[in-house]
Amino acid sequence: MNETRSTDARYPTALGYSTPTSITLLGDDLAQDLMGKVGFGELSYRLVTRRRPSPGQTRVFEAVLVALADHGLTPTSIVTRLTYLSAPDSVQGALAAGLLGGGSRFLGVTQDTGAFLCDALERQQRDGGTLPRSSGEWDALASHAVAEAHAAGRHVPGLGHHIHKKADPRTARMMQIARENECFGPHLELFAAIGRVHPDLLGRTLPLNGAGVCGAALLDAGIPASLLRGIALLARAAGLLGQLSEEMAAPSAYRMFLELESGAEPMDPTPAG
């Protein structure tokens, strides 16, 4: 069947474009200008923002990818392994299954924290205020945001971790990297202030978690707030591929399945209440 290309259809794009002899990506020749010259992290940043990152932005962006890549046998990696057990002919299905599990409890915290920080900063400026200039002013803004969320019964994203009860090892390091690369901006300032003020407001001390600090760092590095979860999934795709590689070499999903199957016990099917 011969297909003809309509001369009337136009679909503008600044991303990839191919001709019989070349491939153009972001205005550059893919083969000559990008391959072997640009790292995947820098290219990903450019694809998302349509601009070239500074060296500091690239370092922060890539540090986030490393921080979120893999955390062991989490729900996302478990479902990837189990899906591969069920359909070993579908690597893409196993990867997709793990990525689909990125939500409000795992991975999605990066975007939820970013949204919380953006909302607090935008309201501050919308109400005629300016960005804080001292740690005391940052603490005041953070106190207002945390107290408001607490009064409404909402969780403050970026606080707490199921394993790292005192301190998430990624948080201080990410802040250090951002400072070293002149990317420590208002979102990280506010996030750090939340860490200082929340114990008095919530009545307990929780660690600032790595997913949350990654959201703040990405915002200060120039990533749009609406795409933060996508960046977290980009990072986790590499980790899930590693999980698949290990599952192929040293299978464990079948043992997980057998444990769950042997642990199943009957219960009354009548709905409670």
Rank of each mutant, 00 (worst) to 15 (best):
E3G: 12
T4V: 15
R5T: 15
A9V: 11
P12E: 12
T13G: 12
Y17C: 13
S18I: 15
S18F: 13
T19K: 00
T21C: 10
T21Y: 08
S22W: 11
S22R: 15
L26S: 04
L26K: 07
L26R: 07
G27S: 00
K37D: 08
V38W: 05
E42M: 04
E42H: 06
Y45S: 04
Y45K: 01
Y45M: 05
R46W: 06
V48C: 12
T49H: 08
G56P: 00
T58G: 02
T58K: 11
T58V: 12
E62L: 11
A63Y: 05
V66F: 07
V66N: 01
A67K: 07
A69P: 09
T74M: 09
T76Y: 09
I78G: 04
V79R: 05
L82Y: 01
Y84N: 07
L85K: 02
A87K: 12
D89V: 12
V91W: 02
Q92C: 13
A94Y: 09
L99Q: 05
L99W: 10
L100E: 11
G101H: 11
S104C: 13
F106P: 02
L107E: 02
L107K: 06
L107I: 09
V109R: 06
T113A: 08
G114D: 04
F116D: 03
L117Y: 01
D119Q: 15
D119Y: 11
L121P: 06
R123G: 14
R126V: 13
D127H: 14
G129D: 08
L131E: 14
R133N: 13
E137M: 02
D139H: 01
A140I: 10
H144L: 15
V146I: 10
A152W: 08
G153H: 01
R154A: 15
V156I: 11
V156R: 05
G158P: 03
G158F: 00
L159A: 01
G160Y: 04
H161Y: 00
H161C: 08
H161T: 03
H162V: 12
I163Y: 11
H164S: 08
K165V: 12
K165R: 14
K166H: 14
D168T: 09
M174V: 04
Q176V: 06
G185Q: 00
P186C: 03
L188C: 10
L188P: 02
L190Q: 07
F191T: 05
F191P: 06
A192I: 01
A192D: 13
A193R: 04
A193W: 04
A193N: 01
I194W: 03
I194D: 09
G195W: 02
D200S: 15
L201E: 03
R204W: 10
T205E: 14
L208E: 02
L208V: 07
G210D: 09
V213I: 10
C214W: 03
G215N: 07
G215H: 05
A216T: 06
L218S: 00
D220Y: 05
L227I: 11
L227W: 09
L234G: 02
L234D: 03
L234Y: 08
R236E: 05
G239W: 02
G239N: 00
Q243M: 12
L244G: 00
S245A: 11
M248S: 04
A250F: 04
Y254E: 15
Y254W: 13
R255W: 12
E259H: 13
E261H: 14
G263K: 02
M267I: 15
